[in-house]
Write a protein that binds this DNA or RNA. Structure first.
Length: 636
DNA sequence: GGGCGCTGTCATCTG
DNA sequence: CTCAGATGACAGCGC
């Protein structure tokens, strides 16, 4: 049984890796929830089951659990998903990404012994290659699967190259942690020490850096150089290693390392306060734009390149992906930021938190609490004092909505006929046919799938009517005056076929038909307006989160740019010093040393090192031969 | 009394 | 063409 589990796990992991390699985002989170295949969400786009507007964004939020999907069959999925998010939002920092990482680490390797045998990761120098392979596999797993737990600050600080001893120490710690994890796994616990994973990630990151450093092609390999040039080139090797080291040092200065899991970002949506959840939820899409889930190849390195990829740790799971030096110029121009500043989006931060709370409370408000027409989400304070609440105010403040007269009130005796006409329209039919309710809060009423749904609604409306008759909406009162046994809410939400049948069978006058159509139209439009406004607010909040995320990103990039400029300046000085040293050892054909003030060294892309006059004169090339070609320099 | 926010409603467009 | 939804604009109301 244990082996079967192992093989199944390995197969699953391999399949996941394959999917990730072809660019399919595997949502292990959803997979673990067990409701949908992880591939279902690989597109990440709006499902056809939802409306075109980003209503589904509410799905993953606390406020969104009331959004009604077009397809009620998805309710189970979304409800479960919401509950899962709520459970995760209870405060445990260890979410699924952590657990999945541990799961991979512990279950992948198995050679007859227990999984993730720590001794495989021990610091035995003889097992160095094996360890390297293990780490490489783990790294590939994480990176390929979008597990790229972007190495946080403490994982990349000032550790450009990992010494074997350090690595062994790391692995020793890893071993201990793995033992603990194995014990936990045996107990069936899913909790994983974040520290251990941190160690894992750190070791993996260090290993990657080590691998990267080992795969760097020598700048001038294959050339036979005189000793002084070899020294010089060795200095360049130092220079190559110097820059990333500086970058790593610089990265430690970042106070707010942005680390997140891209592929599982939806699991980061919490139900906490907006201050906590907003940045996480809004930052993810920002950086996902930068994520390139693919590149594992070692980037082209120039002699002066070696721009450390750790600089770009902001870009999510691509933080370990190397960035080509040309991207160095991709630093956002400050003008862009100035342009952002000119947008004056900071005012968005002045959104009243009470308003946001109000939005939250609105989403929790039952549909029928109160309304102008019995349909509103919110309690309408205007109803009590509204002049239209008087019994004879049917036509006032109506605009062009009605054009109907008191004649309507005389129709109250038609209630029996209406009931007969609609005995075939049951609440079950209503529930079966309403697939287009895009409201935010209507589900609370409609999710009550009891057969007495309409009766319940009626009772609620009736009770409200009895207790607070002044809260009856105008449309509701008009419908009652018609003698229909259906409320305005039901008229609004009944299928159009039933509504047309109602209009046909009731022998209603033109004005009455107009009234019912207006009631239905107004009710639907009211909900649509509410949804639209909520959507607007949500968009504003989302933009605010994006602005915050961009501000953080901007600060980080500015710091990185300053540090990079400083490092480049230091490198230039170092290069200049080296050039002077080298030039001082070069003699011209007369045996005179070259004047460093008049010449400089130039390292071309093809590996040649040339001595060039500082003025624009003919340069001469020194190839990798033992006898350095010398050309008489025409001194100015 | 004016400003502001909320809400309902209408008109219009789109799918 | 009809229907439903989305959205800008406007008005009424309360604070």
């Amino acid at each position: 049984m244990h082996h079967m589990k192992k093989y199944f796990t390995e197969g699953l992991i391999q399949f996941t890796i394959l999917l990730s390699l072809i660019g399919v985002r595997v949502d292990v989170d959803t997979y673990f929830s067990g409701y949908f295949s992880p591939l279902i969400e690989t597109d990440g786009g709006p499902s056809s089951a939802f409306i075109q507007t980003p209503f589904h964004h509410y799905r993953d939020t606390a406020a969104g659990h009331q959004v009604h999907p077009k397809c009620p069959e998805l309710d189970y999925f979304f409800t479960s998903r919401r509950l899962l998010n709520e459970v995760r939002a209870l405060g445990s920092p260890a979410r699924f990404p952590t657990r999945v990482s541990a799961w991979l680490v512990h279950l992948v390797p198995d050679d007859g012994s227990d999984v993730s045998e720590p001794h495989d990761l021990s610091g035995d120098p003889d097992d160095e290659d094996v360890n390297t392979e293990n780490h490489r596999e783990e790294s590939d797993h994480r990176t390929g699967e979008g597990f790229g737990r972007s190495v946080s600050q403490d994982c990349t600080v000032s550790r450009p190259c990992c010494a074997a001893g350090e690595l062994s120490k790391e692995e020793t710690l890893l071993k201990q942690e793995n033992e603990e994890e194995d014990e936990k796994d045996e107990r069936g616990q899913e909790e994983t020490s974040p520290a251990s994973l941190n160690q894992l990630t750190q070791s993996s990151a260090l290993e990657q850096e080590d691998l990267l450093g080992s795969t760097l092609p020598p700048p001038l390999s294959g050339l036979e150089l005189p000793p002084q040039w070899q020294d010089f080139l060795s200095e360049f090797d130092d220079f190559d290693s110097m820059v990333p080291q500086r970058m790593s040092d610089l990265e430690a200065d970042l106070p707010n390392p942005i680390s997140y899991d891209v592929s599982l970002q939806d699991a980061m949506v919490t139900r906490g306060d907006s201050a906590n959840c907003r940045p996480a939820s809004s930052r993810a899409p920002l950086f996902r734009l930068e994520s390139t889930n693919s590149s594992h190849s070692v980037p082209p390195q120039t002699s002066a390149g070696a721009i450390p990829s750790s600089l770009f740790c902001l870009s999510g799971n691509s933080s370990r992906n190397e960035t080509s030096p040309t991207q160095m110029g991709g630093f956002l121009d400050e003008a862009v930021f100035e342009h952002i500043n000119m947008l004056d989006l900071g005012n968005l931060g002045t959104i009243d938190p009470q308003m946001l709370d109000g939005i939250q409370s609105e989403m929790d408000t039952p549909w029928l609490e109160d309304s102008d027409s019995g349909l509103s989400l919110e309690s309408s304070s205007r109803s009590a004092a509204s002049p239209s609440t008087s019994s004879d105010s049917f036509c006032e403040d109506e605009g062009g909505a009605t054009g109907y007269s008191s004649e309507v009130e005389s129709l109250s005796s038609k209630g029996g006929a209406c009931a007969a006409a609609y005995r075939d329209w049951s609440p079950v039919n209503l529930l079966d046919n309403i697939w287009h309710d895009h409201t935010y809060s209507a589900p609370q009423a409609q999710n009550s799938t009891s057969p007495s749904w309409i009766t319940t609604i009626k009772q609620e409306v009736m009770s409200e009517d009895e207790s607070e008759p002044e809260e009856i909406s105008r449309d509701e009162r008009r419908v009652q005056a018609l003698g229909l046994q259906f409320s305005a809410f039901q008229i609004v939400n009944m299928p159009v076929e039933n509504f047309l049948e109602l209009l046909d069978r009731q022998n209603l006058s033109g004005s009455e038909v107009t009234l019912l159509r207006d009631v239905r139209r107004r009710g639907k439009n009211k909900l649509a307006a509410q949804n639209c406004r909520k959507r607007k607010l949500d968009a504003i909040m989302g933009l605010q989160g994006e602005v915050d995320g961009l501000a953080v990103q901007r600060d980080a990039l500015l710091r990185q740019r300053a540090h990079t400029a400083k490092a480049l300046s230091a490198a230039a000085e170092h290069f200049e010093a080296l050039s002077r040293t080298v030039l001082s050892h070069i003699r011209d054909e007369y045996g005179h040393p070259l004047n460093p003030e008049n010449y400089t060294l130039h390292c071309s892309a093809n590996g040649r090192v040339m001595v060039q006059p500082r003025t624009n004169t003919t340069s001469r090339t020194m190839t990798g031969s033992k006898t350095v070609k010398r050309k008489k320099v025409k001194k100015p």
